[in-house]
Design a protein around this nucleic acid. Structure first.
Length: 755
DNA sequence: ACGCGGCTTCTTTTT
DNA sequence: GAAGCCGCGT
């Protein structure tokens, strides 16, 4: 079977048009990944060496899956393709080129918390207030600057920026930015943005003609999710593709309607500029949606039509009409969760879905908790993506910090983490002194520690420092000979981490020991060339350095679990590019989705971005889509009452099926005056007590439910049992409800009262 | 030097 | 409802 036969006309054109610049505008579910994959396969078939192809994807997982699919067409040489995220590909390149721009080849990568703590330190050192100069805020300003190619000098000379900072009462951000850049350089460290920024520097400063090398190398460049690239990323692509005599073999794939990363500098301006920068550009529009039913596609279209500034396209589907989108009102976040879980069970039964066919999508990661609890209670296997990940755990960070220091002792954030863990009598006072000396002498902290004996520290402290230095020295000696696993397990044992963790006999303590073991197992499989890491297939380098640089850029979406048959919980952002048979979008309330921030900013662009986010969420669903909101929920341990999300009202009622906790439930606010909404929400609150009574609803025993019985269902209200099937615990009743219509109910979970 | 406990603030969203 | 910060007691 020829792969070209699996494509529609436009897709095939986009795949086979391999020379010159191409832009593919691809609506949701339009076979974008398929085009990208087959295009690469086609390139290889046409005789292009795989290592001359650079494919920048949004997740490492996407890259890996693409490679797997390409392998089926062209064989194992597909592994030689340079495919990965911007960050991971550039980290890999920088590793071999870093010395050209003043970084060690073994540079560290600072994660968000390293970055934050580095900033806080600078703020303190400048005698500024850490409450006014909040690390998160400064970080996002610095990040924005880098992503817009503004260096500290330019920042300082940018009147507009300075004025804005002044208005926000943080006039010294420019100074912090400058010190921050210097601090990281001294530490031989790059933050996430630097992986792009320094790559850009490498290409634009072009030491030793390095840019020619990469232009020569990457003859074909493909960029996925182009709408989510920022100016910095665009500029890097320009360096690689746009130059005199370039064949301009660039293919960008994206959808302006799905641009959801403006907060990190992404701009659809890139799509618009693209046309200008490449006059020969050929545009293909993929408008047929192969994913979702008519109701879902239509709802998505209606919602997104409210946004201004869009590229014109019409998404259509030939899939059937499908089920209307269900809307469910809950009284509390807990009830919302309960409802989702019950619906999952009901749908599993009715449509024979597996766990993995479901996704619960939310605006903020903090919402995951209640769903986790409900799923656990019903023993439904699930996996939460994002939020607190394995690598965020303290014990894991401590271990990794040791390894980072061994590889790069100038890595100050890692060093500070472990210098007194496990406790070895090097306290805050000592560290303060060391830091001061480091600043005075412009040494790194590590150099000061090594020379501590020449400085007058107390005898006890001096000894502690000497022992620490020699321990790290011992580890470093093994760097040249040991592989990552041998070295890591040696470090974990000899540093005393394991011993310290084992002291704690509680369950949590035990699980920390297990986590460290799991980390070591992960390093082992990296060394043994298992596929846990995306690039393992062609990263020959099994050193610790190589491991560290790879591991930090992994997200949990990238790591495939053995048992994938689980309900997936994730933020809408994380769900980009994924699809599920049945999707639940939860927390559809004002101040949550759209987020409070976007409403407060009073910026239409911010709301438009939230709407695109909602569009992304809707279009993840293939067959079943359920939208939920709650009239009350806990936030910061306090009860808050939100209004229904405006987005719900933007979907045409003909695509919706109301399905509240009580038959009288309607979307509040839809077509109502503001006063009416207020009245209604007041009424709702007072009716809360009535509802509480109904939660003490007494279900009748299963035996009592028989054909012909008149019953009341906790959610669907009154109805009549039409027929019964199944046996024992799996008995099912088909019930005709007065309001909700005919439903098949699995009795073991349903709460039904016989009248 | 170090750990504990009470205090505040915090929440978008990700590499 | 957690995580970081500060101050106090050992």
């Amino acid at each position: 079977m020829n792969y070209l036969d699996e494509l529609n006309d436009i897709q095939r054109k986009a795949v086979t048009h391999i020379h010159g610049p191409v832009l593919v505008i691809a609506g949701p579910g339009s076979g974008k990944t398929r085009v990208l994959t087959y295009r690469i396969a086609h390139l290889v078939k046409e005789g292009i060496p795989p290592w001359e192809i650079l494919a920048l994807t949004f997740t490492n997982k996407a890259a890996r899956e693409m490679k797997e699919r390409i392998t089926k067409v062209v064989g194992t040489k597909a592994n030689r393709i340079w495919a990965g995220t911007f960050h991971s590909i550039f980290a890999r390149i920088l590793r071999s080129e870093a010395t050209k721009i003043g970084y060690p080849a073994d540079f560290s990568i600072y994660d968000t918390s390293d970055t934050r703590s580095a900033i806080t330190e600078i703020v303190k050192s400048q005698g500024l207030d850490t409450k006014t100069y909040r690390a998160n805020m400064i970080y996002s300003k610095i990040s924005m600057a880098k992503n817009n190619l503004i260096n500290p000098i330019e920042y300082k000379n940018d009147g507009e920026r300075l004025l804005l900072d002044k208005q926000q009462k943080v006039p010294y951000v420019y100074k912090i930015y400058d010190l921050y850049v210097k601090k990281l350089q001294r530490a031989g460290a790059m933050d996430f943005d630097d992986l792009l920024y320094q790559m850009h520097r490498l290409l634009s400063e072009n030491p030793e003609n390095v840019v020619e090398k990469y232009r020569e190398k990457f003859k074909y460049v493909l960029v996925d999710e182009f709408q989510d690239t920022n100016q910095l990323q665009y500029s890097i692509i320009q360096h690689l593709v746009k130059y005199d005599g370039s064949p301009q073999n660039i293919c960008a794939v994206g959808d302006d309607a799905q641009s959801i990363y403006a907060f990190r500098g992404a701009t659809i301006q890139n799509i618009l500029d693209f046309e200008k920068d490449y006059p020969a550009l050929k545009i293909y529009k993929l408008e047929q949606n192969y994913r979702s039913t008519h109701h879902i596609v239509q709802a998505a279209n209606t919602v997104i039509s409210r946004n201004r500034r869009q590229l014109k396209k019409t998404i259509f589907t030939e899939k059937g009409e499908g089920q209307p989108i269900r809307v469910v009102r809950a009284m509390s976040d807990n009830e919302e969760a309960r409802h989702v879980v019950e619906s999952i069970l009901e749908q599993q039964h009715r449509k024979h879905y597996k766990h993995e066919d479901f996704a619960i999508l939310y605006r903020t990661n903090a919402q995951s908790r209640v769903f986790e609890e409900s799923l656990k209670r019903r023993r439904i296997p699930y996996k939460i993506y994002g939020g607190m990940s394995f690598y965020d755990r303290k014990e894991i960070k401590d271990c990794l910090a040791y390894l980072r220091v061994v590889v790069n002792p100038r890595d100050e954030e890692a060093l500070k983490r472990i210098i007194n863990y496990p406790a070895r009598a090097i306290g805050a006072t000592t560290i303060e002194k060391l830091t001061q000396i480091a600043a005075q002498q412009s040494w790194s902290l590590w150099e000061v520690i090594k020379r501590a004996h020449t400085l007058n520290f107390a005898k006890r402290t001096s000894k502690a420092l000497r022992e620490f230095a020699s321990m790290i020295g011992l580890f470093q000696e093994k760097l040249a000979t040991d592989n990552a696993y041998d070295l890591a397990s040696y470090v974990v044992r000899m540093s005393g981490i394991l011993k310290d963790l084992r002291k704690d006999k509680t369950t949590e303590g035990q699980s920390r020991v297990e986590n460290v073991q799991e980390l070591l197992d992960g390093i082992k499989s990296f060394v043994d060339n298992d596929e846990i890491l995306e690039q393992a297939a062609h990263v020959e380098d099994k050193s610790l350095t190589s491991y560290l640089q790879n591991v930090i850029l992994l997200t949990d979406l990238d790591t495939d679990e053995e048992n994938t048959n689980r309900v997936k919980l994730m933020s809408v952002h994380s769900a980009k590019g994924l699809e599920f048979k049945s999707v639940f979008i939860v927390g559809l309330e004002e101040n949550l989705f759209p987020s409070l921030m976007s409403i407060k900013s009073n910026d239409r662009n911010a709301i438009d971005e939230e709407r695109r986010l909602f569009y992304v969420a809707i279009t993840r669903a293939e067959e079943e889509l359920t939208l939920l909101y709650s009239t009350s929920r806990y936030r910061f341990g306090k009860m808050v009452y939100n209004n229904t999300s405006r987005f719900l009202e933007e979907i045409s009622p003909k695509n919706l099926q109301m399905d509240g906790t009580r038959s009288s439930a309607r979307i509040s606010g839809a077509g109502m005056s503001k006063q009416a909404v207020m009245r209604k929400s007041f009424a709702r609150k007072t009716s809360n007590s009535t509802y509480k009574k109904s939660s003490s609803f007494q279900p009748s025993p299963i035996q009592k439910i028989v054909t012909g019985a008149n019953i009341i269902h906790e959610r669907f209200g009154p109805g009549k049992v039409i027929s019964m099937d199944g046996s024992g615990m799996d008995k099912i009743a088909t019930i005709l409800f007065d309001q909700a219509g005919e439903k098949r109910i699995l009795l073991k979970y349903a709460k039904i009262q016989v009248k």
